[in-house]
Design a protein around this nucleic acid. Structure first.
Lengths: 344, 344
DNA sequence: CCTGAATTTGCAAGCGTTTGCAGAAAATGA
DNA sequence: TCATTTTCTGCAAACGCTTGCAAATTCAGG
């Protein structure tokens, strides 16, 4: 008979080991670990020391199964192929780290067509709350969450009554400022490259543009606005269209930086100079905006702060589910760099 | 006595509900859900239908607590403020989605100084495996994982014997090709901006550069290599140093695209033209490389594919923990764009 | 020294699954 | 037809933790 080697994997240390080590019951250990009030100071210390000595780390699954918090929040994003989202996540992660929360990443394109099931799974799953950076909010998402009274916060989304907590930026104002800036530089024909109009921020930016023109007594010219989709290629195409016009605009306002980059490329390919021949201004102020040449003048959107605020809001809501939904709108700011020049 | 309104939240449906609904025991339900072999076809169908009807979604915490898979893999990254990582994650996410796995995101900067505890927590937590995109692999990370026989895969990391599974790219070859390309264009003095030398890929790229020079009978000149850290500002600074030299290089090879962007900026600010006065070549081929002006010639690293392959490797390992560690190295490719010109 | 309130601790019942074990039912072979 | 296998299904014991309940201890006031 040969002895089985029995590779005894170092079984992870549980609350029970800590209890044994410190000579108390495991429920007491649990209480200490959860900061329960009524625990004798000496006991608390003893338990803490034992936990430390044994290198104890809580098993989140068990904890959350038993009704505690999982200390995890979910983040639902369309994708990661965009600095814009990266910036937001950075803010989120920072805030969560500060509060000892972890992050679960869900991408929406994964289950096209069955968002409902997807969200249901997320909500019933191990997360304590959900952050959504979703352009189009198929109410599919929100309805279920709301109905289940599951804590969630929408980022960069405007619609929705007051049932949802939302964090966004002053899109209208930002676009207004940018347009106004262009007008003050002497531009009269200002092209506009829009985002996907299903997204509220895209609509608001267009509105801001219109309002600024209006306030400056410049007639709105439908033919100067080209539909884009927030991605670079669409900016490229839109700019080309603009340049092909009989009297092309002397400046272009792109609804986001990525499309602005595309536009810059189109302009250059047309043999024109930026800002010599044509000025361009973006929106977002992603890191790349200050790296391209010429450096892009744009509307700064405090993305990381939006993330941070959203996380904070969510944590509050997790803490106290009764908290009413809140909407927080952060200010945008015109960042003047090198892509615009006075005209005429 | 007033009736409590008793907001009965729609309690999530459990395996037991499904069992009741379909008239079998809950263990049978579990078996059906897990694709256990010995279940009568009619029973299986009945259970599946009931589950569907009730809108059942498994509780991952419970499942993983009980020893099953959580269908979640962790991803440990230094941060998200870099397209480089975004690309990799995209690949990972795609592959995971295909296999119904979810992604948990962990950032290393969170627990500086207590990586050990952090990793321990991750491993003991609910993930089935861990993917690490870590520049410097403090063996702290790997040792624990290996010791606990916890499935993990390193991405873009070369060191480590054969105990760890690794996915990376041909850094040496890529750098060799780039350098050689420059030499063939007639460049003799080629500046080199390195990455953090604690990172193996940075070292390999430098080696590739040296070897190419060597093969072309060009003496290696220590003063032409400047230390960078993979971030844009360091590329800017390094390029400035290079330009200040008595006989500045006619071309610069940057260890990654981000630093190349910085270098481009420095070059422009010095009043020089790219590629007229000086050629520049990068490494990575992040999306932005084809957007900047001039479009950056660079060494393409199949980032998303690396992510996909790493995920696949990890999944295999989760499936069969006995699988020996594997190292997969993907090829790089020189992408010629507009930032280099022949010299002399 | 006694009583009752305030503290402190342990017991045990879950939380929703997986799984080993064993009994029941169906299929096979003689 | 009966003894064996092979399938199928249910029971009950975990998994590691939280928490209500109650017992034990301490403490203050009389």
């Amino acid at each position: 008979m040969v002895e089985q080697p029995e590779q005894d994997l170092p079984r992870s240390v549980t609350i029970i080991d800590v209890a044994r080590e410190s000579g108390v019951s495991y429920s007491t250990v649990s209480r200490v670990l959860n900061g329960y009030e009524y625990v004798k100071e000496s006991t608390r210390r003893r338990v803490l020391e034992a936990a430390e000595r044994l290198g104890y780390v809580a098993n989140l699954q068990a904890r959350s199964l038993a009704g505690g918090r999982s200390q995890i929040v979910g983040l639902l994003v369309p994708g990661l192929d965009n600095d814009y989202i990266g910036e937001i996540i950075r803010g989120i992660d920072e805030e969560l780290a500060r509060n000892d929360y972890d992050l679960m990443l869900y991408t929406t394109h994964r289950r096209v067509g069955k968002e409902t099931e997807y969200v249901k799974m997320i909500a019933n799953g191990l997360t304590d709350g959900l952050l959504l950076i979703v352009p189009l909010i198929p109410s599919t998402y929100v309805d279920i969450l709301h109905q289940q009274r599951f804590p969630y916060v929408l980022i960069d989304q405007s619609e929705n009554g007051d049932t949802s907590s939302v964090v966004n930026a002053t899109n209208w104002q930002g676009a207004y400022d940018a347009t106004r800036y262009l007008v003050e530089l002497g531009h009269r024909r200002i092209g506009f490259i829009s985002g996907m109009m299903e997204i509220s921020s895209a609509v608001e930016r267009l509105e801001g543009y219109k309002s600024a023109l209006d306030d400056c007594q410049i007639a709105f010219d439908e033919s100067l606005v080209k539909q884009g989709n927030f991605w670079q290629p669409s900016g490229y195409a839109a700019a080309q269209e603009l340049l092909r016009m009989d009297t092309p605009p002397s400046a272009i306002f792109s609804s986001n930086d990525l499309m602005a980059f595309g536009a810059m490329q189109a302009i250059r390919e047309a043999g024109l100079d930026i800002p010599g021949d044509i000025s361009i201004i973006g929106f977002d102020n992603i890191p790349m905006a200050s790296i391209v040449h010429p450096k892009l003048t744009t509307v700064h959107q405090p993305l990381d702060q939006m993330g941070r605020v959203a996380a904070k809001l969510l944590l509050e809501q997790i803490e106290d589910p009764q908290k009413p939904a809140r909407r927080i709108t952060l200010g945008t700011q015109l960042i003047i760099r090198d892509s615009c020049r006075s005209f005429g």
